[in-house]
Design a protein around this nucleic acid. Structure first.
Lengths: 137, 137
DNA sequence: CCAATACCTCTAGTCTCTAGAGCAATATAT
DNA sequence: ATATATTGCTCTAGAGACTAGAGGTATTGG
């Protein structure tokens, strides 16, 4: 049986965040000690690790809830879970593409800035003027 | 003189968001029509385009505020602006790296899911078990 | 056994918007 | 010129995913 602090350390999820997840119904209410403190089992730890991992991957709380509920109907096919992952993959690819364009632009911006007065500052001008962009946002 | 709707169309910033920016002090209070509706000048449009562009680039409202205040002291060097862009570039590169790892992992997850029952579902297992990951998050 | 640390609940705040209610002004069609 | 449709106004609340703080209680280490 783990205290909330232990659980936090082992999963990397902050203590208030664990309580928040409980409130949101992502994890069930754990057992309590005599003094009313939360005590977690290994199962709880696995569940939280699952959630943590999903969040790290950028899944929303709702997507994770969906996955959890899917995993509690072991007879149904995993098509639902696959769909969630697939949808997310699309998002991720779009985000990567956007960020790469952005990286590119920031590189250009930074490399043009050589400490002149603000009037000539490439950063300011680039932000003011879309025409300086190589790509559309 | 543009209405808030016109301004919105030309900048791609939604109407409530424009009002929100005004409230946050990012744009100054515009002139009003007889009937108390906001009327924007070309200067206002440029300012909003600047903000929009910065937000698209992922700058926080505070960073943009900093840039605006920098741009209003045209004698000072643009080192500050450069610093903001540079810091942001670092962030962007980190995010790209993270997302690429994630893309990789999601690809693996999706390609392993072939419609079996949830017990065997790779998506669920991969999310439960960090050991299946190729990379640490 | 006592002090330090961790835990409890509850409320409110963060950030960047977004949505809705209820009403006023402006634009368009007849 | 008038009826209607669209757009605008303010204000409040909500979303999403936490985070912080106050004021008090358990547990743990020395």
């Amino acid at each position: 049986m783990l205290s909330i602090g232990e659980l936090s350390k082992r999963t990397g999820v902050k203590v208030p965040t664990i309580r928040y997840y409980e409130q949101m119904g992502l994890i069930s209410e754990p057992d309590r000690s005599e003094g009313n403190q939360r005590r977690y089992s290994k199962t709880d730890l696995e569940r939280l690790a699952f959630i943590r991992h999903g969040r790290d991957l950028g899944l929303t709380i709702d997507a994770i809830k969906e996955l959890i509920s899917l995993s509690q109907h072991p007879d149904s096919p995993c098509v639902g879970a696959d769909r969630i992952a697939r949808e997310h993959l699309d998002d991720v690819r779009i985000k990567i593409a956007q960020l790469k364009r952005l990286e590119h632009e920031l590189e250009r911006i930074v490399s043009h800035c050589d400490g002149h007065s603000i009037e000539d500052c490439y950063v300011i001008r680039a932000l003011s003027d879309h025409g300086l962009c190589e790509h559309e946002h």
